[in-house]
């Protein structure tokens, strides 16, 4: 798939996290095809979008990063990624990031993309697959932990 369709998402990840939480996201390398199932670092949020094309943004992060993001967004301290507020905060930040990237894609390419609500989950060694749809991933790190940004497009993007 076209990596240039994926770039707005990593740009939005960096911008939104910096603006809303002051967390700096550094990328390691560039987008790579993700052929395998994704083994979660701990906390995953998925948001789908549809318009002229359909796709999915998946953000996957280590538990400490999720807890840190949630803490900075709400000015509270959390101890576990299983807490409702942590999951809700990650869900919301994914929503904002996907919305920001979609706005860029809609303005640039006229794709008319709309979002589903985010899904967020944390579990014990969760594996996520999106059968038959190619995706690309970029590995990132922050001072609080690792983050993977995975973007899939279906239908010839």
């Amino acid at each position: 798939m076209e990596v240039q369709m994926a770039r707005p998402f990593i740009n939005s990840v960096k911008t939104i996290l910096q603006q809303m939480t002051s967390i700096d996201v550094e990328t390691e390398g560039d987008f790579q095809p993700e052929n395998n199932d994704i083994i979660s670092y701990g906390v995953t949020s998925i948001i789908n979008f549809a318009g002229k094309v359909k796709g999915r943004l998946l953000l996957d992060m280590e538990p400490d990063l999720a807890v840190d993001i949630a803490g900075r967004l709400t000015n509270e301290a959390y101890s576990s990624p299983k807490e409702h507020m942590v999951l809700a905060a990650i869900s919301e930040i994914n929503n904002i990031i996907a919305g920001d990237a979609n706005t860029f894609l809609n303005n640039t390419y006229g794709l008319g993309l709309r979002l589903t609500p985010p899904v967020v989950f944390t579990g014990n060694k969760a594996i996520i697959s999106i059968p038959k749809i190619p995706s690309v991933s970029i590995a990132c790190r922050t001072s609080s932990g690792k983050l993977k940004v995975n973007i899939a497009f279906e239908g010839g993007a």
Partner: peptide, 11 residues
């Protein structure tokens, strides 16, 4: 999206 794992907390 298919999620394979145990003890999942999800919204």
């Amino acid at each position: 999206s298919v999620i394979f794992g145990k003890d999942i907390y999800m919204i």
